[in-house]
Nucleic acid binder design. Structure first.
Length: 425
RNA sequence: GGAGAGGUGGCAGAGCGGUUGAAUGCACUGGUCUUGAAAACCAGCAAGGGUUAAUAGCCCUUCCAGGGUUCGAAUCCCUGCCUCUCCGCCA
C-alpha cells in the first residue's frame, strides 16, 4: 500500500510514477473522493467530540444530584445525526481503502523504465553453457527415458499441470531442497521456519496477493475462506505483521521450504509441456525484514544468496533487473535469475528477488522502533526464491545429461543422495 | 468430539455503567544520590488517525473481533475467533 499522504500531497507526480508501472490513476476522481473524506471525517469527529463532552457533563450533573433531563433533551438528536454521519463516512473510507489496496508499489528510481520483459536489462551472467554433440533432450524426454517423471499419472490424480516424480528424480528433488536449506542456514545466516500452508485472507492481503489477485489463488470453502499459499513469502513475511520490533531485533532473515499452489489463471497454453509451470511446486524462499535504510544492501545480499546456489550446482545463469512495467505488484525493484535450459535452448526464470520497500509493511503494520527517536517506523520487506526446486531439478537434468541419457549428479548434491554419482539407465 | 475457564498497555494484573487511555507491580528511559555500580527516591513511558507549515496545540479512534443496549460501555447483551485445563480420539 502506498502512503496516503503522498497521494494527498503529491498526487500528479504519484500518478505519473504509477503510469510507468502500467497503472492509470484517475486523479480527478481520487481528488474528489479525498475531498469528501476530509469533510466527512471532520464532521464525524466533531459530532463525536460533542457526544463525549455531553456524556461527561451528564455524568457530572448526575453525580451532584442535579436534574439531568434538560441535558438529555439537548442531546436527543445527536445520536441519530452521528450514526448517519458515521455510516456516510464509512462508505467513503472503504472506497478509498479499496482503491489504495488496488494500487501497485512505486518503482524505485533506479529501475529501468519499460513496458514488458523486452525492456528488462541483463546485469551479468555466470558459468559456461554446456556443449552437446547431439541435440540435448529436454527434461520431459529425460524423465520418460528413465521412467521417473510421469505427467499422466499425476493428471489421473489431479488433472493438468501436475507432475509425479519417482525414484532417483524424486530423491534429487528432495536433495535439492535440503541442500538449499543447508546452504542458507549454515553459510548465509538464515533462520529456518516451518509455516502453515493455508492462510487467512488478511495474510494474503498483507503481502499483496489479495484483494486484487484472488483468481490466482486456491481457496478453501471454509467461511471465511483460507488460501493455499502461492509462495512462502506470504506466511513468512506476515510473521512481521502487527509487530513493532526493537531496533536490535533487525535484520531478520528467514528461509522456508514450502509447496506453492497457483491457479495459473490466464496462463492457459503457456508452458504446457513438462514441469515448468505447475499448480503445485516446491520452493525454498528467503525473506528479509529490515530497517528502511538497510533494504538496498539487503537486496544485493539476497540476490547473491540465491545466485550462490546456482554457482554451487554449477548451473549457468544470468541475472537481470526487471523494468518498471514487468515487476510484480508489491515490488519496488526486482532482480530475476534465469537458468540456462539446454532442452529449451533458452534462459528461464528460476528465482525472483524483490525489494518491496514499505509497501507490504504498511499493509501488515510491520514496524520497528527507531532507537534515536523512540518512534515506530515501517520496516522494509524483501523476498526471493533461493530457489524454485522443481525448476532447479529441470536445470540439473538438462545440463548434466550425457549422450546415452544418463545424468550426472552435481558434486554438492551427492552427499544428499547417498553418494550416488550418476543416474544410469 | 464432550466439560469447564479465560482473552485489558512490553509483561504480570486491577477495574465490572459515568471526567478510565485505563490502578498497582515488573521491565524500560531520564534525573538525584554514589569513586563506580546496586539499592533508594523523583519523573517519564501505548498505537493509529484527523486538522495544521508544524515532530506545536486541539480533536477522534482503539481494553480479541463484529453487532446491540445507553446521554455515556473495558464494564451489560448477542455472535464469532483464539488461548488454557480435564476427558475422548489421533499422525
Amino acid at each position: 500500500m502506498l502512503d496516503p499522504l503522498i497521494l494527498r500531497n503529491d498526487l500528479d507526480a504519484t500518478a505519473a510514477a504509477l503510469k510507468t508501472r502500467g497503472y492509470t490513476l484517475d486523479t480527478a476522481v481520487y481528488e474528489a473522493l479525498e475531498a469528501r473524506r476530509k469533510a466527512l471525517q471532520m464532521g464525524v469527529e466533531s459530532l463525536q467530540s460533542e457526544r463525549n463532552s455531553s456524556a461527561k457533563a451528564i455524568g457530572r450533573a448526575k453525580a451532584q444530584g442535579e436534574d439531568i433531563q434538560p441535558l438529555l433533551d439537548s442531546v436527543a438528536q445527536l445520536g441519530t445525526k452521528l450514526a448517519a454521519a458515521e455510516s456516510e463516512f464509512r462508505v467513503v473510507r472503504e472506497q478509498q481503502a479499496a482503491w489504495l489496496l488496488d494500487m501497485p508499489n512505486l518503482a524505485s528510481t533506479d529501475v529501468p523504465a519499460g513496458s514488458d520483459e523486452a525492456d528488462n536489462v541483463e546485469l551479468r551472467s555466470w558459468g559456461e553453457k554446456p556443449h552437446f554433440d547431439y541435440p540435448p533432450r529436454d527434461h520431459v524426454e529425460l524423465g520418460e527415458l528413465h521412467q521417473m517423471m510421469d505427467a499422466e499419472a499425476a493428471a489421473k490424480l489431479a488433472g493438468a499441470r501436475f507432475t509425479l516424480l519417482k525414484a532417483s528424480m524424486a530423491r534429487m528433488h528432495r536433495a535439492l531442497a535440503q541442500f538449499m536449506l543447508d546452504v542458507h542456514t549454515q553459510e548465509h545466516g538464515y533462520t529456518e521456519v516451518y509455516v502453515p500452508y493455508l492462510v487467512k485472507g488478511e495474510t494474503m492481503q498483507g503481502t499483496g496477493q489479495l484483494p486484487k489477485f484472488a483468481d490466482d489463488a486456491f481457496a478453501t470453502n471454509d467461511e471465511p475462506p483460507r488460501y493455499l499459499v502461492p509462495t512462502a513469502e506470504v506466511p513468512v513475511t506476515n510473521l512481521a505483521a502487527n509487530t513493532i520490533f526493537a531496533a536490535d531485533e533487525l535484520p531478520i532473515k528467514y528461509v522456508a521450504q514450502t509447496p506453492c499452489f497457483r491457479r495459473e489463471a490466464g496462463s492457459a497454453g503457456q508452458d504446457t509441456r513438462g514441469m515448468i509451470r505447475q499448480h503445485q511446486f516446491e520452493k525454498v524462499e528467503l525473506v528479509h525484514i529490515v530497517r528502511a535504510e538497510d533494504s538496498v544492501a539487503a537486496h544485493e545480499e539476497l540476490i547473491g544468496n540465491a545466485e550462490r546456489i546456482l554457482q554451487l550446482l554449477e548451473l549457468p545463469y544470468r541475472t537481470i533487473v526487471l523494468c518498471s512495467g514487468d515487476m510484480g505488484f508489491s515490488a519496488s525493484k526486482t532482480y530475476d535469475i534465469e537458468v540456462w535450459l539446454p532442452g529449451q535452448d533458452a534462459y528461464r526464470e528460476i528465482s525472483s528477488c524483490s525489494n518491496c520497500s514499505d509497501f507490504q509493511a504498511r499493509r501488515m503494520k510491520a514496524r520497528v522502533r527507531n532507537a534515536d527517536t523512540g518512534k515506530p517506523e515501517l520496516v522494509h520487506t524483501l523476498n526471493g526464491s533461493g530457489l524454485a526446486v522443481g525448476r532447479t531439478l529441470i536445470a540439473v537434468l538438462e545440463n548434466y545429461q550425457q549422450q546415452d541419457g544418463s545424468i550426472r549428479i552435481p558434486e554438492v548434491l551427492q552427499p544428499y543422495m547417498g553418494g550416488l554419482e550418476i543416474i544410469d539407465l
